[in-house]
Amino acid sequence: MIHYSGTPTLETDRLVLRKLEGSDAQTVFDHWLSDDRVMDNLIKGAHKSVEETIKRVTEIVDQYETEEFCYWGIELKSSGDLIGAIDLFHFDPMTENCEVGYTIGYDWWNKGYGTEALSAVIEFGFRTMNIHKISAAHNTDNPASGKIMSKVGMQKEGTIKHMIRNAKNQYKDCAVYGLLQVDYFNDVK
C-alpha cells in the first residue's frame, strides 16, 4: 500500500527540495519555464509570459493540500537559488507504481544536481511512500536525462516511438526507465 506523505522538505548535500510558493513564480519563469533549451524537452513548451508561470505555480501550490501530491522545487543550499523542479506523479494504487519527472534550468546543467535530486526523491518514494516501482521517460534526443536515470540505478526498459508530441507539434520517441523497490534496497544495502 502506498503511504502518501505529501511534499515534505528533503535535503541532500547541496540541495533543499521544498514546496514551491507563489512568490517563486518569477524565478521559475526566469530560470527554466521561459527557456526553450530546457522546455524543448517537455510537452507544453516554454512559457511566453510570467502570467503563464504564475498560473502554473498557483495550480501547484493549491495542490499541496492533498497528501497525494509530491512536487518539489530544487533549491541550492549555497545560494538559495531555485534551479528546477521534480515530482512524483501518476500514482497507480493497484500496482503501487508511479512516475518521476524533473526539470533543471540550463545554467545548472551538467553539475550533478539532477542526479542528486532524483536520488533523494527515489529514496523518499521507496522508503517513506512504499512505492513498488518508479518509472521515468526522456526524449531520445535528450540523452543527458537518461544518464541521470542510469546514475541513480534506473534501468532502460525500452523505447516508445512517438510517445509524446511537443509544443512544436513534433512527435518524439522516448526511452523508458524503471527501478523496482526490491532492486533499490538490494543495491543500497
Rank of each mutant, 00 (worst) to 15 (best):
R18T: 06
R18P: 05
K19V: 02
K19M: 11
K19W: 03
K19L: 00
L20C: 07
E21Y: 09
E21I: 07
G22C: 08
G22K: 13
S23V: 12
S23L: 10
S23D: 15
D24Q: 05
D24W: 00
D24I: 12
A25L: 05
A25V: 00
Q26I: 03
Q26K: 14
T27P: 00
T27M: 09
D30R: 12
D30I: 06
D30W: 09
D30N: 15
H31S: 13
W32H: 08
W32T: 05
W32G: 11
L33V: 04
L33Q: 10
L33K: 09
S34F: 01
S34N: 13
D36I: 07
V38I: 07
M39L: 05
M39V: 01
D40E: 11
N41H: 12
L42I: 14
I43V: 14
I43P: 01
G45F: 04
A46C: 03
A46Q: 05
H47C: 14
H47P: 02
H47D: 08
S49H: 14
V50S: 07
E51M: 05
E52P: 00
T53K: 05
T53G: 10
I54E: 14
K55C: 11
R56C: 04
R56V: 04
R56G: 02
V57S: 02
T58Y: 03
E59K: 11
E59I: 06
E59M: 09
E59C: 10
E59Q: 13
I60A: 08
D62V: 04
Y64M: 09
Y64T: 06
E65K: 13
T66M: 07
E67T: 04
E67M: 07
E68K: 12
E68A: 13
C70V: 10
Y71P: 03
W72Y: 03
W72T: 00
W72E: 06
I74W: 11
E75T: 04
E75W: 06
L76E: 15
